[in-house]
Amino acid sequence: MNFRRLIISVTLAWLTVFVFLPHLLLVGTSVMTPNPDHLVVWPVTLDSFEKVFTPLYFSVFWHSLELAAIATVICLMLAYPFAWILSTFNSRTQALLLFLLILPFWTNSLIRTYAIKILLGKKGLVNATMINLGIIDEPIQLLYTEFAVIFGLVYLLLPFMVLPLYSSFDKMDKSLLEAGRDLGAGTVQRFRHIILPLTMPGIVSGSLIVFLPAMGMFYIADLLGGAKNLLLGNVVKNLFLVARDWPMGAAFSVIMMLMMALMLLLYVQANRLVSRKGGLHDSNL
């Protein structure tokens, strides 16, 4: 077999067996009937998808969406100025700061979650500091609350938001801003009409990278949220590994896949908008 055929067939074979087929099976599983002895059996049914919309599951789903959305928004609010400032430095400083941003990743995220658990406990550093500063008299309950879950999500996901934003800022054509100012556009105007649209792809892809994974991080809710069913990840994990209702778990996964597809579509739209707007601005200026 020649080299070309070899590498193309290896590529296709691997991706087919370990990516395409599994996803197909996942969709397949979601429309089967659950069975305690054989995991799934015929007949094909949409019951699992119907169950998603029963009050129990829908409320978990909705709540999980809310938590993930809050975490995403906070990430965005922190990461946007961060990436912006970062992009104004010279390239050596940029490289160093980016390195510092990524460095924590070499410690397993579970261990970092554990660190947060220690920080937030009643005898933890956060409470101790606040008491020393006289902000509170008695330790307050931070651990095992939704606050702790959001805190943990933001902590683990922030760098993922910074990176795409940084690359949008980095790619931004700075002459547009100068031109904007020369034409008398104020700070707010320049932000709204130039910077925001140009960094929109970064915003969307950052949110994409943060939002959906945030819903899946069951270990955050387990460790910081008191093992309540707070995130979709907990439910999916329970359905697969405890309740053994695979079709239902698969149905949730399929829905997450669909949401991802939807957000990707948005991303493509945002990109298109930028290239068009960029063109418009060019001609206007």
Binding site: P55, L56, S59, V60, K228, N229, V235, N238, A243
Partner: peptide
């Protein structure tokens, strides 16, 4: 049980 752990 699942309901309870969800807070319902």
């Amino acid at each position: 049980w699942q309901k309870l752990k969800t807070g319902m």
